[in-house]
């Protein structure tokens, strides 16, 4: 069968319009649910860092609205948050660069603006099993109780040291992820830049 050019143009145009139209409708219908998922996940992770334990996304969104309020006079995204122990700390949004793409996270600081209560890191495309470990609980847990100022009151942020070297300066360092040097350095730099103004 021979098809004219006219037929070909019409055929592909109609096909693309049908496909695009259907996808637009599907996207509109599903968007509220997808956004709720994303919001709920972020809220759940921040709350976990603030000591509230594991929550479902619905619980997390409700609780987050009641314990956290945005700090509006800040240049970056920040919230004042009442932690599970009653202490009023702040949540600081930090972002930086990993090996393959952006990394970001939320750091919960206690009311002394020095002690880290917890962290929740995310990444776009770090290597699974290596850099992607920054999202894991065991890594996040290692930050709890660390301080961003050293004993002399100088700002040092938290250093990611090679395994075994972190004890020398236990207050201000955690174990880096072995095999993921660049992601670890990225996390270190992100924290240094992101928490610089938060401690004041």
């Amino acid at each position: 069968m021979k098809f004219s050019n006219r037929y070909i143009f019409l055929y592909i145009s109609v096909l693309v319009i049908i496909v695009a139209g259907t996808l637009a409708i599907v996207s509109l219908v599903l968007r509220p649910r997808q956004e709720a998922n994303r919001k709920g996940e972020t809220a759940a992770r921040i709350l976990k860092a603030a000591g509230y334990g594991a929550l479902s996304t619905e619980q997390a969104v409700a609780l987050f609205d009641s314990v956290a309020s945005p700090i509006t006079d800040s240049q970056t995204e920040r919230y004042a948050i009442v932690c599970s122990d009653g202490d009023t700390g702040q949540v600081v949004y930090v972002s930086g660069k990993g090996l393959w793409g952006p990394i970001w996270g939320y750091v919960v600081l206690a009311s002394d603006n020095n002690t880290i209560k917890g962290v929740a890191f995310s990444h776009k495309s770090e290597t699974p099993g290596l850099g992607a470990k920054i999202t894991e609980e065991s890594f996040a847990d290692s930050f709890s109780g660390k301080k961003i100022y050293n004993a002399d009151g100088e700002y040092v942020s938290v250093v990611l040291a090679a395994k075994g070297n972190s004890e020398a300066n236990a207050e201000n360092s955690v174990d880096a992820i072995s095999g993921a040097t660049i992601t670890s350095k990225g996390v270190e730099k992100m924290l240094y830049e992101g928490l610089k103004d938060a401690g004041k």
């Binding site: 098809f3 037929y7 070909i8 055929y11 592909i12 096909l15 693309v16 496909v19 259907t22 996808l23 599907v26 996207s27 599903l30 649910r33 997808q34 998922n37 994303r38 996940e41």
Partner: peptide, 29 residues
Amino acid sequence: PPRIRIVVQLVVVSFFVILVDQFLQAYLY
């Protein structure tokens, strides 16, 4: 039309892939 069959196939496959992706993001986040 045989001359554009690959294009047509890609449009159809992309349609289903985007559909699946949207559903996963909504229900299996």
